[in-house]
Nucleic acid binder design. Structure first.
Lengths: 226, 226
DNA sequence: AACCACTATATAACTATTTATATAAATGTC
DNA sequence: GACATTTATATAAATAGTTATATAGTGGTT
């Protein structure tokens, strides 16, 4: 479970569940969100497994704090997780599913609005990361390649966020441009709407003849086995 | 729930749970994965709610099929989901969490290996999408902007996949270049290792002094309220 | 006849995550 | 003093998703 390992990483500096929630909202949020109701049981699980230890502490305001810290066994588990290679392939993108099915609306204006909102959202996040990078440039004379190891790795994460979001924004821009052009074309050809862009029967089930994967070429199966 | 709505979209063409699983693995997989054990109960839920109807059918091989289809109410629910704007902000990226914490390994060679695997994985997916696009170009004279509505929207999805993966591959390349340079620098400065890149005490908890968000500027809070 | 691969549905057990709610102490404000 | 806010932990209930397993028919291979 990724949350367990992220907590293991963060708890290399002692923190309470409440502290960790703030850390998540401030900087982990970009790639992993977590609620308090998930953090607390997970901390107990880590402690029971011997990956974290806990000690009571007093708070100047409010009830007592349970401050956790990664143990040696916990750091070993964290290293194992990191060493066994990238965890990839489980990502889910609801907005891509929405675009995939959006022909259902039968209204390019709505699709255009969708992409505009999406574009703004991606761009807002991109601007936040770029602002952050500018802040680092100004604040740290070691920036970017002489940064000490933890910051260097955090910076690699930041750069991946920036380049990835850049791709998303560009993609939205391209889609918006194409949608506008298509709407223009539709307007000018009315009422003799182009054959290719009109649905013959708008209530008929759409046939996605173009799959996202090209058809299998069975002949390509390797068969060298003497 | 996104899975419900994706099924609603796919079931505009009648299909059984087994059929749907194949559709997921062939083309939905890129942005949403689903297991049979999740598809079957969800289909029953859709039927109970009146969003899909089911009729028995015989199979030439194997047991009887339960073929589902979206109802009018189901299509309305699908349209509502699409019309209420992009579902965004819940994405989780375990591999970014891994990079964020990878200073723990204290070994740039392992980080480099990690990025190489990641790069290959992104690139393999990118190549698959590009191959698919080439296949479309050759197969469809309407490509890309005269495509009928369902294919046009599927193509927008494909393009976002291509541009997003492109950003990821570029980001990996950048990281790999920086890692190589840093390793080179470390090698040449040994044993007098540069102050900035060496951990004083490799067992001390890392202090991520650079947060992914710049410090709050409290003074910026709007206060115009007469 | 034994075995495997494929089609097809189903469910149990587990893990992960979200939403809502309860509790309680301290501080500040109207 | 009443009330809101912040700090702090905790749990219940619901939802979402994975892994493993069971069942069963059909066709092909050994």
């Amino acid at each position: 479970m990724s949350l367990e390992h992220i907590l293991l990483g963060l708890l290399r500096q002692p923190a309470s569940g409440y502290d960790l929630k703030k850390v998540f909202d401030e900087r982990i949020d970009y790639f992993w969100a977590a609620e308090l109701s998930q953090i607390y049981p997970t901390l107990k699980r880590l402690e029971k497994r011997g990956w974290a230890r806990c000690c009571q502490a007093v708070s100047s305001r409010g009830p007592g704090r349970r401050v956790y810290e990664t143990t040696t066994a916990g750091r070993r588990a964290l290293r194992d997780w990191l060493a066994k290679g990238p965890e990839i392939g489980d990502e889910r993108f609801a907005y891509l599913a929405q675009i995939y099915l959006m022909d259902e609306l039968g209204d390019l204006k709505q699709t255009l609005r969708f992409f505009t909102v999406l574009r703004d959202d991606f761009n807002r996040k991109l601007e936040a990361l770029r602002r952050l990078e500018r802040y680092w440039v100004e604040a740290d004379p070691h920036y970017p390649d002489e940064l000490p190891p933890p910051d260097f790795h955090v910076h690699l994460t930041l750069r991946m966020g920036i380049l990835s979001l850049g791709g998303h924004v560009r993609s939205c821009d391209e889609s918006i441009r194409r949608l506008r052009a298509r709407m223009d074309r539709e307007k000018h050809t009315r009422p003799g709407v182009s054959k290719s862009t009109r649905r013959k029967n708008p209530h008929a089930p759409p046939r996605h003849k173009l799959a996202l994967r090209p058809p299998d070429r069975k002949s390509q199966t390797p068969r060298a086995r003497p």
